[in-house]
Amino acid sequence: EDTKDPNKLKNPTHLWGNLDVQEFVKKLKERGVTDIKVEDSPGGHIVLLQNDDTLIQIENGSTHVICQGNEQLRKHIRDILLTCLQKF
């Protein structure tokens, strides 16, 4: 059965534009995420959250969050991404 999640997305959102990696990292730090490492990749950047075993691949037009079952952290990352991207 579904649990009530205050962070549940009300409507599907259509996002556009590219992610500003510096702004994204700044907002992660503001949320208390530590040990953030940013690396360049052939398609853009990789943000590593080393304490949390989480990796975020950022490219033009796409972001992929790869984590290990930590839903609280994933939802923090999701919410930050939504504030960093243009939407309608």
């Binding site: 996002l15 992610l19 037009g61 972001t63 992929h64 290990q68 079952g69 991207l85």
Partner: peptide, 18 residues
């Protein structure tokens, strides 16, 4: 988005549990 010249940004999540 195509008509307006905007590039769509997709977000994907992959979570692995034990």
């Amino acid at each position: 988005m195509k008509e307006l010249g905007l590039e769509e940004h997709t977000i994907r999540f992959t979570s692995t549990i034990f």
